[in-house]
Simulated assay, not measured.
Amino acid sequence: MGQDGFRAEEIDTSRPHPARIYDYLLGGKDNYEVDQRAGDALAAAAPEVRIGLRANREFLRRAVRYVVGSGVRQILDIGTGLPTSPNVHEIAHEVAPDVRVAYVDNDPIVSAHADALLSGSGANSIVLADLRDPRAIVDHPDVRRVIDFDEPVAVLLVAIVHFLTDADEPERIVATLRDALPAGSFLVLSHATGDFADRTDAQAVYSKATASLNLRSRAGIERFFEGFELVDPGLAQAPFWRPDSPPPARSEEIGFYGGVARKAH
């Protein structure tokens, strides 16, 4: 149960859900007509949205490789979305096969698909929970089965915090997660922004969805990293965070910031 009385099990699948809209825009098949209509409206309102979502996935890939390469062996992926290959554990295992991943999402459909994907994998888990109740995530037995909070953890908040309104107190939510982490842990976060174009029409698409889209400025997003030390190059547009290949055309239009930060103390 979230602070506002939200129950994950009661999501209205007659309305678009962000995870399924993303799945549709990334070319997936785990979505409904209502999600497809929303995705088409989003692409009409923000023509760069598809390259933006791909850039966000590529940021995720590079960030996971970075944190695992830095020695982290456990990942808490909150707002994981529908399985999109390569998944976080697949990316991590390319670097270190002993990495454990706890996936968290508030959509039962995501949970069901991920359950099927992870069947037989004792090193990973999928938890149905809501970011708006971060303490419940940290304390969840299926998270604790995979994650040892006495050892460094990488928390992934990739394209999820922008679905929290200011009334949800997102800075408090991220701080609650931060305070559960030992030194040497990492925060990987990406977030939509209107810094590069007016995206009011894109926000309107989500007014009919199960979560609103709350664009924030660079300065507003940097506040989520309080208590962490950003690694170079700091908070950057997603395609320009440690690129390992030439960024795609129109990357400067992409309305996603991404950053990785380490908890030193």
Rank of each mutant, 00 (worst) to 15 (best):
Ala41Phe: 04
Ile126Pro: 00
Ala45Asp: 04
Ile173His: 07
Met1Thr: 12
Ser119Trp: 10
Val101Cys: 12
Ile51Gln: 09
Ala41Lys: 13
Val146Thr: 13
Asp244Gln: 15
Asp168Gln: 11
Lys263Val: 04
Arg61Ile: 14
Ala238Cys: 14
Asp107Phe: 01
Arg37Met: 06
Lys263Glu: 03
Arg65Cys: 10
Val155Arg: 03
Ile78Leu: 02
Ile78Lys: 09
Phe228Glu: 03
Glu226His: 14
Val49Pro: 00
Arg100Asp: 09
Arg262Asn: 00
Ala46Pro: 01
Ala202Tyr: 12
Arg144Lys: 15
Ala63Met: 08
Ser125His: 04
Ala96Arg: 12
Arg50Thr: 15
Val231Lys: 03
Gly220Cys: 12
Gly69Met: 12
Trp241Phe: 13
Asp179Arg: 13
Ile91Gln: 08
Arg57Thr: 12
Ala264Glu: 12
Arg145Thr: 10
Val101Arg: 03
Gln36Pro: 03
Gly234Met: 11
Gly234Gln: 13
Ser185Thr: 04
Arg172Lys: 15
Pro247Gln: 10
Asp12Ser: 07
Arg20Tyr: 05
Ala261Pro: 06
Glu9Asp: 15
Val99Asp: 03
Pro141Tyr: 12
Ala123Val: 01
Glu252Tyr: 14
Pro16Asp: 03
Pro182Ser: 11
Gln36Asn: 04
Val143Glu: 07
Arg178Trp: 06
Thr80Asp: 01
Ala114Arg: 07
Ala92Phe: 07
Ala136Ile: 10
Phe186Asp: 00
Ser190Gln: 06
Pro152Ser: 09
Val49Glu: 13
Glu94Asp: 15
Ala154Asp: 08
Val231Arg: 11
Asp133Trp: 00
Pro86Phe: 08
Ile91Arg: 00
Arg57Lys: 14
Ala38Cys: 05
Arg199His: 13
Arg242Pro: 06
Glu10Ser: 14
Pro18Asp: 09
Glu151Val: 01
Pro233Cys: 09
Asp30Gln: 14
Ala43Ser: 14
Ser70Pro: 02
Asp77Thr: 11
Arg250Leu: 13
Pro16Val: 14
Val95His: 01
Ala236Cys: 11
Ile160Ala: 07
Val68Cys: 05
Arg54Phe: 03
Pro243Arg: 08
Ile221Ala: 02
Asn31Asp: 05
Asp195Cys: 08
Tyr257Arg: 03
Leu76Gly: 01
Thr193Gln: 08
Leu156Arg: 04
Gln36Ile: 11
Arg218Trp: 11
Gly5Pro: 01
Asn124Ile: 00
Ala63Leu: 09
Arg54Glu: 13
Ser217Cys: 02
Asp232Phe: 12
His140Cys: 07
Gly69Leu: 14
His113Arg: 09
Gly69Asn: 07
Glu9Gln: 14
Glu33Lys: 11
Leu181Ser: 04
Ile147Ala: 01
Ser245Ala: 15
Gly5Lys: 09
Asp98Pro: 09
Arg7Lys: 13
Arg223Ile: 08
His162Met: 12
Ile147Met: 09
Pro243Trp: 09
Asp201Trp: 05
